[in-house]
């Protein structure tokens, strides 16, 4: 089971993870089109937390016992067969309970759609885009055991 490891010591705060998260979740998958043409512009599901010199990119940790899933009132959040916490926006009612309970602040709001938004581990492309494009290995993919450690 692979999970994203945050390496705070080498995060340089460039926010390329946010940029490429936006591209990965755009319709065109083209960086210039995603930023300049697509309206509304996709929202980054990873956010760099920064208090210089400390910084790190944080996205959903895909907890083995996800409080967000347990708290979701509409069944929009669920765990898939790989243990990835996913969000079905069709079911989401925008109550923001998940945002309230997430201990990592990793769930975003899609203000236009009035739904929650979270990291989907880039299920379609294998390696998450933020990991793939981090220039300093501030985010890496590591193997963890079934219980998430």
């Amino acid at each position: 089971m692979k999970r994203i490891q945050i390496n705070e010591d080498v995060c340089i705060g460039c926010r390329l993870c946010e940029v490429w998260c936006i591209v990965a979740h755009s319709k065109s998958k083209d960086i210039i089109k995603a930023f300049k043409q697509e309206k509304p512009r996709p929202i980054a599901m990873i956010r760099v937390q920064e208090d210089i010199p400390i910084s790190f990119g944080a996205q959903c940790r895909h907890c083995p016992e996800p409080i967000c899933v347990f708290s979701c009132i509409s069944g929009a959040l669920y765990i898939d067969e790989n243990g990835i916490v996913l969000h079905n926006s069709k079911k989401c009612v925008g109550c923001w309970t998940c945002i309230l309970v997430c201990p990592y602040g990793a769930i975003m709001r899609n203000e236009d759609e009035k739904t929650a938004l979270k990291c989907d581990f880039c299920m379609e492309q294998g390696t998450p885009s933020c990991v793939e494009h981090c220039p300093n290995e501030g985010l890496t993919l590591v193997e963890v055991s079934e219980n998430g450690f």
Partner: peptide, 13 residues
């Protein structure tokens, strides 16, 4: 300017 997406990576780097 046709390429700049205002991501501000340059600003931060």
């Amino acid at each position: 300017d046709d390429r700049c997406i205002r991501c501000q990576v340059c600003v931060r780097q």
